[in-house]
Design a protein around this nucleic acid. Sequence first.
DNA 1: TGGGTTGATGTCAGTTGCTGTCATCACTCT
DNA 2: AGAGTGATGACAGCAACTGACATCAACCCA
Lengths: 190, 190
Amino acid sequence: MGRWEPDGRGRLERAALALYGERGFENTTVAEIAARAGLTERTFFRYFADKREVLFWGAGALRELLVSAVASAPESAAPMDVVVAAFETAAAVLQERRESALQRQVVISANAELRERELIKLALLGAALADALRRRGVPDTAASLTADTGIAIFRAAFEAWVHETEQRAFPQLIRDSFDELKAVTSGASS
Amino acid sequence: MGRWEPDGRGRLERAALALYGERGFENTTVAEIAARAGLTERTFFRYFADKREVLFWGAGALRELLVSAVASAPESAAPMDVVVAAFETAAAVLQERRESALQRQVVISANAELRERELIKLALLGAALADALRRRGVPDTAASLTADTGIAIFRAAFEAWVHETEQRAFPQLIRDSFDELKAVTSGASS
DNA sequence: TGGGTTGATGTCAGTTGCTGTCATCACTCT
DNA sequence: AGAGTGATGACAGCAACTGACATCAACCCA
C-alpha cells in the first residue's frame, strides 16, 4: 500500500476546501483540485460522486453518530429529548473541528448549488432520524415531526454558533435553541 | 412577432415534461427537448437557467400567489391562520392543473437531482413567506417558524392529495393537515 | 522463489450541460 | 425607406462526468 502517498481522499478534500475558499467554488476546476492533491481528475471522481460532494462527505459520519445516539438512548426518554440529546452529542464533536467547520460553511453559504446540496443532506438526516425514532416505537407522524423539529433546532443553534464571538459551547446553544422553541410554540395558541 | 411559432417557452416546457416522463430525466438531452419543441438547444438555455429549471419555473408564480395572499390578509388574523389560508388558496389553483402537477411530481420523485432542486424551491418559498409575515409585524423567529410550519403542512397535504383516490379537495386536505399538526403538537409536553 | 491476484491510480476518448459571441431577419417605429 | 429591436440560429469552446483499459507495487500462496 505504499506505492503512492497515503490518504488520497483526505488530500483531495483538503485541496478542494482550500481552493474553494481561495477562488470560490465555481472558479475552481476539478483538474486543479486533483493537481494540488497530486492526483488525477479521474481519481477525484472515484472518491466523490461530484464536485460538490467533497464538502458533504462528512455528513455521513454525522448522520451515523446521531442515529446511534438515538438508538442507544434510554427507553423511557421522550422522543424530543432523545433527539435533542443526540444533537448535543453531535455538537460536541463538531466543536472539536470548529475551524474547518467554519471554513466549510463560508464556502457553502457563498454558493447556491452548495446550499442546495446542504438542504438535501439535512433532509436525508431528518429521514434517518425519523427512522431511528420509529425503531424505538414512535409513531410515524410524530417521528417525522420530532426529527424535523430537531433539525430546525440544530440549524438555529448552528447559526448562533457560527456568529458567536464569545465561543459559547455549541451543545449549550442546542439546549438554548430548544428552550426558545418551546417558548415560541407554547406561546402560540392559534 | 409572427416570424416563429409562438410560445417558445411553453413548447419547451411541454416537450421537456413529456420526454422526462417517457425516458427519464437523465436519459433525455437538452438537444432532444429543443428538437421536439422545434427550437435550438441555445434557445432552451435562454429560457431556462438549467435543465432542471424547466420543471420549477412555475414555482415563482406559486410563491407570488402565496406572498400576496399573506400580504392582503386582514390585519387582525393570526399569523398561522394567514399562512394556512394562503396555502388553501394556492391549493385551489393547483387543483385546476391536477394532471400536469401529478406528472411533474412523478418525474421529480424519480430523480435525486430534481428532489434536490425541489427542496431548495421550498426553502426559498419559506423564506419569502417569512418575509411577508415580517412585513405584517410578526417578529423574526415567529415568522420563520410559522412559515416553515406552513410548508410542513403543505407537504403533508400535497402527499395526501397525490395519493388520494377519491379526489378529496386539496384545500380541504390543507385544512385537515393543519388540524393534525395541532393535534400532534398539543399532545406533546416534553 | 516466483507467478498470480488485487487495488489504487493513470490514460484517453467521448458525451453532455452550459456559455460567449456574432449573424440573421421579421417586425416596428419614425 | 431606413434604422432599430428582439427572438432565434450557428458555432466554437470549456468543464463536469463516464467508460474502458493499462499499469504496477504490494500481497498471497504454492
